[in-house]
C-alpha cells in the first residue's frame, strides 16, 4: 500500500510541475500561435531568483513566489514587446508567425541559457528547505516535495478558475475560438496578448521556484521542461488549461511507473514515445471528443 502510494504520489508531484509549466506555454500557443521554445529558460530564471533570495537574503522560498511571479511577468511583457509583437504584426500568415516565433524562441534559448552560464557558472546550486520527511499512510515524502506539489496544483487551479470565471479569462477563451469575433466585441489584443504572454512566463517562474526547493539547479535545467511541456500540451489538447493539468499529472505518473518497472535511463525515451504516439494517433489531444 505504502509502496504504491509513494510511487503514484511521486509521479503526481512531478506531474504537478509539468502541468504548471505546460499551461503557460499552451495559453501562449493557443492564443497567439507563439511556440516559445525558450519557455524552460524562464523556469530556470525563476529557480535562480529563488535560490539567490534564499541563499543570500534568507527569504522563505514559498513567501518569495509572488515576487518571482511578478518579476517573470515583467520579463514576459518586455520579451513580448521586444520580439513577438513585431512578428505578430509583420507576418502575413499564421504559419509564418509560428515559424518565426519558433526561431526567435531558439534565439532566446541560446541567449538566456548562456547568459545564465556566464553569470552563475555551470555548477549545480541548491539549498535545503523543508527537507524533513513526512509520513502519510505509510508513505514517506519530504516536506518540500509536498509543498511543491500543493503550490503547483493550486496555481494551476487558480489559472483554470481565472480562465473560466473572470472577464479576462472569458476574453482569452473567446479570442482562441474566434479572433475576429472577439475583436468585434471590443477585446483588445494589444493588451491581452502581452498580459497572457507575461502570465505564461510567471507560471514558468513559479514552477522554477518550486523546483529549486527540491532539486539542485543548473542553467541547462529548463530545456527538458520545455520538451515535457510540449508533450503535455499534446496530451491535453491545444488551448485547454484543464487538459494540461490532467495531461501533466498523467505524464508524471506514467513516467514514475515506467521508470520503476523498466529503468530510470528510459525516462526520456518513454516521454518521447508517449509524445509521438499521441501526436500520431490523437493529434487533438487525449481528451478531445
Amino acid at each position: 500500500m505504502g509502496f504504491w502510494l509513494e510511487l503514484i504520489a511521486s509521479g503526481l508531484i512531478t506531474g504537478g510541475i509539468y502541468a504548471l509549466v505546460a499551461i503557460g506555454l499552451n495559453l501562449q500557443y493557443g492564443l497567439m500561435r507563439i511556440m516559445n521554445i525558450s519557455h524552460g529558460e524562464f523556469l530556470m530564471l525563476g529557480a535562480y531568483l529563488t535560490w539567490l533570495a534564499h541563499t543570500f537574503a534568507g527569504v522563505n522560498p514559498l513567501a518569495f513566489l509572488p515576487v518571482v511571479a511578478l518579476a517573470l511577468f515583467g520579463a514576459g511583457l518586455l520579451v513580448y514587446r521586444l520580439c513577438f509583437r513585431r512578428i505578430a504584426r509583420t507576418s502575413p500568415a499564421v504559419e509564418l508567425i509560428e515559424a518565426r516565433s519558433l526561431l526567435v524562441g531558439f534565439g532566446l534559448m541560446y541567449l538566456v541559457q548562456n547568459a545564465a552560464y556566464l553569470v552563475w557558472g555551470a555548477d549545480l546550486r541548491g539549498y535545503s528547505f523543508l527537507a524533513e520527511p513526512v509520513e502519510i499512510m505509510g508513505a514517506r515524502f519530504t516536506g518540500n516535495r509536498l509543498a511543491a506539489f500543493g503550490f503547483a496544483v493550486a496555481a494551476s487551479l487558480f489559472l483554470i478558475a481565472v480562465l473560466r470565471w473572470t472577464l479576462v479569462g472569458k476574453a482569452v477563451r473567446a479570442m482562441m475560438q474566434s479572433p475576429a469575433g472577439a475583436q468585434l466585441v471590443g477585446i483588445d489584443t494589444a493588451v491581452l496578448h502581452p498580459v497572457v504572454f507575461g502570465a505564461g512566463l510567471a507560471l514558468a517562474g513559479v514552477a522554477g521556484g518550486l523546483l529549486s526547493m527540491v532539486y539542485e539547479i543548473t542553467p541547462a535545467m529548463g530545456e527538458p521542461y520545455t520538451v515535457t511541456a510540449l508533450i503535455v500540451i499534446t496530451l491535453g489538447g491545444l488551448g485547454s488549461a484543464a487538459g494540461c493539468l490532467a495531461g501533466g499529472l498523467l505524464l508524471g505518473v506514467v513516467e514514475a511507473l515506467g521508470m520503476h518497472f523498466t529503468s530510470p535511463s528510459l525516462k526520456m525515451l518513454l516521454s518521447y514515445a508517449v509524445f509521438i504516439a499521441v501526436l500520431l494517433a490523437r493529434p487533438k489531444g487525449l481528451f478531445a471528443r
Partner: peptide, 9 residues
C-alpha cells in the same frame, strides 16, 4: 552563443 542567439532574433 549569446551573440548567436541575439543575431538570430
Amino acid at each position: 552563443l549569446i551573440v548567436l542567439g541575439a543575431l538570430l532574433i
